[in-house]
């Protein structure tokens, strides 16, 4: 590792493990009584010996299926959880030992847990956060004016949070997380539940923050689009272990080169034969195709489908993240 990259390292994680204890109960009344006197406790490894480092200004996606250990990793890195073993440093601070000191340097959004006061307008939470982060009043006003303008929060600044749409709420959450000028931003499933337009706005904002303010961003998601469109580097976690760590370009070339195309057609018995297209399911009225975009572009395929059939409906989607992970496993083995 070069001297420059050492001094640029913002996050370093080495051999991090987190094990949870899980109480198990057999079914029925007998099981309930038994669990009182001799409870069965099993250990679940949520994070299993992971190591990585992230440099200043990187925009990294931490992805994986549900229960892979993404959120647990983020919660350890933000000082919320204590690890079972291993070491981590964020900006030179061990998160679980310097929780309060680190809080001034990082911003967090946990998509499913709001930090806004539900019955109050966002401005009241922002005022509170300004005090919590010891911001000078003039600095706070300047920063707030900038953020509400950039994130488009002005129009609902004084509307109670309970009356905001999910997209508006997430934007307000971002303002709250960025008020204190964090150097590192942890976004845990920030796009969960958002519609397409809100997702696009959020992705643009994340890129803007990274580019214009140089904020190092770690994003967890199980939405392939989030990763493709936003991140420069991808770390894939499965069953607590890192199974892949590469720039997004490499992942795209090797693993994100497939799309699923579902086509509804008027009755036809013509067979589709095209290079790079695998027919997964087919009948007289519909087809499900797996397309290798390295071999055939989606535009070319759609044009060819239109020529050959009377298409009534078309749906293009990514393969589920579980399939991508499975493929990575198979290829690496």
């Amino acid at each position: 590792m070069s001297k420059k990259s050492v001094s640029n390292t913002v996050i370093s994680v080495s051999g991090l493990c987190k094990t949870f204890e899980l109480k198990k109960k057999e079914p029925g009344l007998k099981g309930s009584i038994k669990s009182i006197f001799s409870p069965k406790i099993s250990k679940v490894t949520a994070v299993d010996n992971i190591s990585f480092s992230i440099n200043k200004g990187e925009l990294v996606a931490l992805i994986g299926p549900n229960g892979a250990g993404k959120s647990t990793t983020l919660k350890i890195l933000t000082g919320i959880l204590f690890p079972s073993s291993g070491h981590a440093e964020i900006l030179g601070l061990v998160p679980w030992e310097n929780r309060k000191k680190l809080a001034y340097q990082i911003g967090t959004i946990f998509g499913q847990k709001s930090q806004l006061w539900y019955h109050l307008p966002p401005i009241d939470t922002f005022d509170l956060f300004a005090k919590i982060y010891d911001l000078e009043d003039t600095d706070y006003r300047k920063r707030l004016n900038y953020l509400v303008k950039v994130l488009g929060v002005t129009e609902f600044l004084n509307t109670p949070v309970r009356k905001l749409s999910l997209g508006q709420r997430i934007r307000a959450e971002l303002v709250a997380a960025l008020l204190h000028n964090p150097k590192v931003l942890f976004l845990d499933e920030p796009s969960i539940g958002l519609d397409i337009i809100a997702k696009k706005t959020l992705r643009d904002l994340i890129k803007k923050l990274n580019k214009e303010e140089g904020v190092t961003i770690i994003l967890t998601s199980h939405d392939v689009d989030d990763i493709e469109q936003v991140c420069e580097r991808v770390i894939i976690i499965n069953q607590g272990k890192i199974v892949h760590d590469s720039p997004i370009g490499e992942l795209k070339r090797n693993h994100l080169n497939k799309k699923i195309v579902q086509v509804m057609i008027e009755e036809s018995s013509k067979k589709l034969k095209q290079l790079g297209v695998k027919v997964l399911e087919s009948d007289k009225h519909s087809m499900k195709l797996e397309v290798n975009t390295n071999k055939v572009s989606i535009a070319k395929l759609v044009a060819s489908l239109m020529n050959k059939y009377k298409v009534t409906d078309l749906l293009i989607s990514d393969p589920p993240i579980e399939e991508i992970i499975e493929e990575i496993y198979t290829k690496e083995k």
């Binding site: 919660k75 919320i80 946990f110 010891d134």
Partner: peptide, 12 residues
Amino acid sequence: SGNISNYLNKPY
């Protein structure tokens, strides 16, 4: 519920 995470990552 795990909501405590919203408090543990603040400087107070």
